[in-house]
Design a protein around this nucleic acid. Structure first.
Lengths: 142, 142
DNA sequence: CGAAACTGGTTTCATTTGTAACCATTGAAA
DNA sequence: TTTCAATGGTTACAAATGAAACCAGTTTCG
């Protein structure tokens, strides 16, 4: 009978790896500020781009619109972001971080960068090229 | 102010990639048999190894014991696996697939392999080496 | 022995998620 | 211009998850 070796099956390995990395990284936003992953991505997206609509946020950070909606609601509750209705289309809201939101963002950015740097630092130069290039290639293949 | 580019941030890219691949792959076990990921992993683990305890399953497939417990309960409900109490330690149960479980497993294995093959087929030989090697390297770094 | 401490596995409860239905508004078509 | 499809965003509900408490059974060690 034909057998599948789970440990070497790419979808499984990829998922397990991403899960482990993400779990480790989540400490930065979870332990410090009690953010969920969608909330972190929302904060991060707005910090990076300045202002975005919920739909744009969903596209940029690969989140379903319900996740975006809930994350935005929570960040608003914390007064980390504000909504500004669009002039022309009253369905649309432009989101932007408040001072408090920006403060949290700029506190976490260096930590995030350090995390990535230290992760990659455990690899050789060739391995770094391999993982980054390999991920890019697979992304492109989808 | 320092900015983080989410789109090129490795933890994010890795997670998004794994999520996309996993989502696509899940169709094989979800659409066909209505299995969840933990259930699929449990089936797969037992199909591969023949017999395992819940704890071993958790180690092999990187699942929390509550996930294993629930997945095993569901597969048992379907009569896809049976439990046999251990002779010496009455806390332990040895799990094994029934005929029906094995049938489902051997039906899905070729589909899983084909999925992986077709995914990798979209890459060049160098890219394949890169992704597989890169993933292995990062796994090792954790 | 007999009281911890530990381990395999299940259950409970709160939180997170996904799907689908929904509301309001806009754009296209008749 | 009225109707119908599409779009931005929220909500309701069911299912999946994680953490911690829990229930046997086992081991350790005074």
């Amino acid at each position: 009978m034909e057998i599948l070796e789970l440990e070497s099956f790419l979808p499984y390995r990829l998922y397990r790896l991403a899960d482990a990395v993400s779990r480790e990284f989540s400490k930065i936003y979870k332990d410090r500020h009690g953010l969920t992953r969608p909330e972190w991505r929302t904060l991060s997206g707005l910090g990076q781009r300045g202002t975005m609509t919920a739909t744009e946020l969903g596209e940029q950070s690969a989140m379903h619109k319900t996740k975006v909606s809930r994350a935005v609601a929570e960040l608003e509750r914390r007064r980390w972001l504000t909504r500004t209705p669009d002039e022309n289309d009253r369905r649309v809201e432009h989101l932007a971080l408040t001072k408090a939101g920006l403060a949290a963002y700029s506190e976490m950015v260096p930590l995030a960068k350090a995390f990535e740097r230290e992760l990659l630092a455990r690899l050789s130069a060739e391995e770094r090229v391999a993982i980054v290039g390999g991920v890019a290639a697979l992304e492109g293949a989808l």
